[in-house]
Design a binder for these strands. Structure first.
Lengths: 211, 211
DNA sequence: TAGATTGTTAATCGATTAACAATC
DNA sequence: TAGATTGTTAATCGATTAACAATC
């Protein structure tokens, strides 16, 4: 299987992902057009960076002197980032984070569909979280295979994170969203995005302290 | 007031923050020494990057052929990032995220102390979250001033995020940890770290889709 | 048409990596 | 001492920015 090189550089992917929520807000406020200049202002970027980011997307172009159509930019982002599919997702862990995710299931225009919730703790197995019955970790391979799950979201404690990732990798997952503050390793053919929520506090304290 | 330039570049600050949890795990497993090479492996970096990152810290140096003392690296990170103080924090929002934060209060060796929880919804005011009584937003200035609060954590819905930031800025906060997926703006003298948890899913779907 | 914004190529800037000296 | 790793300076690489042409 040949692995195509990602055409969009990661920093641009990050920014483009963030434009999504922003554009949805603009759309909800009935803003039909938006300038690269305004996006830049709101994200503390330059308008060139924004236009370059958008230039990475296929099937979208702006109109000189008018900007970009909010609705079209959103459509292009969705199309370029998900191909129009809804990715199948499983959540590992039953703490506050998994509740958050389940409550936000409809986010990103239903681009993600939760297919199961799993937990390490035998005490939680069978419990109900949202509209899901919490399953044993050993059910992961079956569910991932059976429902063709794409993404595993790791929302467990730091010390378990790598074990869960190993499980997901063996089960044949394509991507992992790691919400713990612990770095995890996966083979090259499995994409990993780390979102270490709590280390943001440390970054911030440095910025404040070094001022 | 003169604003000193941050001496450590932001990418290095990010990585160093992530080393923290990792090093704590090593310490808990009684690993006394660690090579830059091993850190690099575990974070998918090069050992030179790791050594350069560490070189930014004051009062720490490695020993050729032995590596860095885990305990000393941790101590140096704490000292360089927080100056040894515990930063005072308020949390705005009473959803799953604020629960998560309250439960992790002891994280980072008590470097952060929660001083209050606030909410927009009148229905939640007076409710108990962890060991805190939820207060009205209009109490923010008083609490920030009275307890000399450094950091505000924004854990509300996307559409409220900017309003809350404005409130915190007026109250005289020094830094903001924005946990919503919406970009927020603050004046230059207020540090902002954005941790858009859910947009991680979009980044990931691009990586998978573009493969 | 004039003005303003998009799109793109070239230049700059900064972060990462390579090379190598220092050292335990 | 020899070997291995740290620490640092110089080179490279990639992302951002500047300049400007294209266009509505």
């Amino acid at each position: 299987m040949t692995k195509e090189i990602n055409s969009i550089p990661l920093p641009a992917v990050r920014r483009l992902s963030r434009y999504f929520t922003y554009l949805q807000l603009l759309k909800d406020r009935n803003k039909e057009w938006v300038y690269s200049d305004q996006i830049a202002d709101d994200f503390s970027l330059t308008s060139v960076t924004v236009r370059q980011d958008i230039a990475h997307l296929k099937n979208i172009s702006g109109v000189p002197n008018r900007g970009y159509k909010t609705r079209e930019l959103l459509r292009a982002l969705k199309k370029n980032f998900t191909g129009g599919n809804a990715f199948k997702v499983v959540i590992i862990g039953t703490g506050e984070l998994s509740n958050l995710l389940i409550k936000h299931e409809k986010l990103f225009d239903n681009r993600f569909e939760i297919c199961g919730v799993f937990d390490h703790n035998p005490f939680n197995i069978g419990e109900r979280v949202g509209c899901f019955d919490v399953q044993n970790l050993n059910r992961i391979p079956h569910v991932v295979w059976d429902k063709k799950v794409d993404i595993g979201i790791v929302a467990v404690s730091e010390s378990l994170a790598q074990n869960i990732v190993d499980l997901l990798v063996i089960a044949g997952i394509r991507g992992i969203l790691n919400l713990t503050s612990m770095q995890v390793l996966a083979p090259n053919n499995v994409a990993v995005i780390n979102v270490p929520i709590l280390t943001g506090l440390l970054e911030l304290s440095y910025l404040i302290y070094s001022e």
